[in-house]
Design a protein around this nucleic acid. Structure first.
Lengths: 208, 208
DNA sequence: CCTTAAACGGACGATATCGTCCGACTAAGA
DNA sequence: TCTTAGTCGGACGATATCGTCCGTTTAAGG
């Protein structure tokens, strides 16, 4: 027990990835957190998240050392989804407006998976998440510009407007009975409004 | 000094209203709560609200016996503002769409005064607030119907849609740098979308 | 099967927030 | 000015949540 210590240093077991149960728990915690945060707000007790995920609080804190880390991970995941959706929308063939429609409808469907920096959470602080966000903005911007170039989308709209509207729909109204249906109708109206302004309609004086 | 007790029973001081300082503090607490709730969410510590209002926690609890009572009062006040705005909008002479525009713009301006049942707060439970809400809905509905009757507003929009959109704008995006400006543009687009659908535009297949 | 690094989960002391209670203070009528 | 009902505000015990720590359990390579 005395001199035999150093000689098997290289026989140490080298694990490749994380253990299966650890990876599972990590995912379950994140999923439970997404639901819990949407339901109870960002101040939801960690114990609640742990219980919902079926793990102990210790496990939550091991994977995400602080509440901010957990919220940050949620934000990151949300932006991953947003970027993915934006890319799919950009890859579509149809008119640009249909790309935007696709993006908005998908955003609505993602519903509770999107725990964006809304809900009182912090704006993304880590570089990786900011990069995701910026890339998503650029991607949506490219669709928008296509529409504005070919005259099918009004010129004064910015990519930030589209993003904001998407965020509003994703955020929703906490106590609305059937938000998905409402959001769809809101999006439909909004998309109609994205057409270039009609001149000489008999709808009366929109002066400025 | 002996038998003279009973005869001045009716000389007891009768105060008319609440004391001035009490009324002041009541208002200041409500105003501070509105700001604090918007900033920190409905779970904001009562001590914070008290400090912001420049009073002690005891004063907060006297005027509003529980957190729910305070949030309820905020909701009530919000719906008062909404109803008032809706009535002004309904009283306007111009095209109905301009009435809706007025309503939305005013709602945006009210900004932080509107702490609607959003923000994770409870839906209105007391009868008086529900009555305010319903009356506001009816008032907005009357504007909408006028527009749909004279053909200047698309038929599939409901009063609930207008209310929801207004609520979204009032709620805003917590971390948006200049929400008022963004909200105005969103409203402008939305209002454009409220026109009846144009047939035969070259914008491509909005099939369903 | 055995070994071992790693993960699990809940008990625990520290801290934060709650809502109450009561002695000091003040507005306002007499 | 005097009186007093009503208000003020913060200290306080109770409760809730935090994040850590550590003995137990488990996945997985040998």
């Amino acid at each position: 027990m005395i001199g035999a210590v150093t000689e098997n240093q290289d026989k140490v077991v080298r694990r490749r990835g994380p253990r299966k149960d650890a990876a599972d728990n990590r995912d379950r915690v994140l999923a439970a957190a997404a639901v819990a945060v949407r339901r109870d707000g960002t101040a939801v007790p960690m114990a609640t998240i742990a219980a919902d995920a079926g793990v102990g609080v210790g496990t939550v804190y091991r994977h995400y050392p602080s509440r901010d880390a957990l919220l940050g991970a949620l934000t990151h995941r949300s932006f991953q989804l947003v970027l993915e959706t934006a890319r799919r929308a950009a890859a579509l063939d149809g008119p640009p407006l249909e790309g935007i429609r696709f993006f908005l409808e998908r955003t609505i469907e993602h519903g509770s998976d999107l725990v964006l920096p809304m809900h009182g959470g912090p704006a993304p602080s880590d570089q990786a998440t900011v990069a995701l966000r910026d890339e998503a903005h650029r991607t949506l911007g490219s669709i928008l510009e296509r529409g504005q170039d070919d005259g099918t989308i009004r010129d004064d709209v910015t990519r930030a407007d589209i993003v904001s509207f998407g965020a509003l729909l994703a955020q929703g109204l906490p106590h609305a009975p059937d938000w998905t249906a409402t959001a769809r109708r809101q999006a439909d109206i909004y998309l109609d409004g994205l057409h270039p302004a009609r001149r000489g309609k008999p709808t009366g004086g929109r002066s400025r």
